[in-house]
Amino acid sequence: MIAVRVFMKVTREPLKRTPVVLRLDADGSQTPPVFTDRSGLASFDLPPTSGKVLVSGMERYQGRLADEIPIALWSITQSEQGSLGQPGAFPSGSNAYPSMTTEAVQVGDRSVLTDSEGYLVDPSDWSEDFARALAAQEGLTLNAEHWEVIRYLRARFARSGTQASVRDMIAHFRKVWGRERGSNRYLHRIFPRGGPQKQGNRLAGLLRTKGEH
């Protein structure tokens, strides 16, 4: 049995409903995502092995996978250790807990919290109405193309526990839309505030990724 416990570094608070994936060195395969329980624990019925731990699509640990592996996060986007086990730096600004700066997006009769860049504080708050409200706040009217990208991003994350890179998006949308509309330039044109990996992820209720540009 391999277990991964995910918690906040500062408060020691367990992170619930957080997707954890193991990527195994032996054959390069990865497990389906397992969501942490109320105690922040994700359990895998596997014998000890070596590989990587991905939390919310980002590498948090690399090495021997056995017993219980603690993953302490400074924030929802950074951890105390990188994937090679090297110490990380305390993040500055709105990403850091417990002093995170938040903003509210009005969705119907309720306020949904985001960080100062528009990323959801709690991914479970996502809804199509949230996406429409945030898009309107960013000066964007969602059309069929936007929704196709948003649903692709969410489906990809639900399926693999990892977020799509721009390269993944281009490869996918060139197949379904053709070379011109599936290009990096076109995807950035329809998501003008940061492209599909920033604005697209925000609207899809996902976190920022290491490869954002």
Rank of each mutant, 00 (worst) to 15 (best):
A26C: 03
T49E: 13
S56P: 07
P48Y: 07
L46P: 03
G28K: 14
E59K: 14
R17F: 01
L15I: 10
V53P: 00
V53A: 05
D25G: 05
F35H: 10
R23F: 04
E59H: 12
Q30P: 00
L15F: 08
G57W: 01
V20M: 11
T49L: 08
S43I: 09
R23C: 01
S50G: 14
E13N: 12
E13Y: 06
L41A: 05
T31C: 03
P32K: 15
P48R: 13
L41E: 09
P33G: 01
F44H: 09
F35Y: 12
S43L: 10
P19S: 02
T11C: 03
G28E: 05
L24A: 03
L24I: 08
A42I: 08
D37G: 13
K16D: 01
S29R: 12
S29H: 05
T49Y: 04
A42L: 11
R23K: 13
F35N: 07
S56G: 13
R12E: 03
D37N: 15
R17V: 02
V55Y: 06
F44T: 09
R38Q: 11
T18I: 05
S56C: 09
P14C: 05
R17N: 04
E13I: 07
V55H: 07
P19A: 06
L46A: 13
S50V: 15
R12Y: 02
A26F: 06
V55D: 09
R38A: 06
G57C: 14
F35C: 01
Q30D: 02
G28Y: 13
L24K: 10
G57M: 04
L22C: 03
S56L: 05
S39A: 10
K9I: 01
P14S: 09
A42P: 12
D25C: 13
M58T: 09
S50Q: 15
V55C: 10
L22Y: 03
P19I: 03
Q30N: 08
K52D: 01
A26S: 13
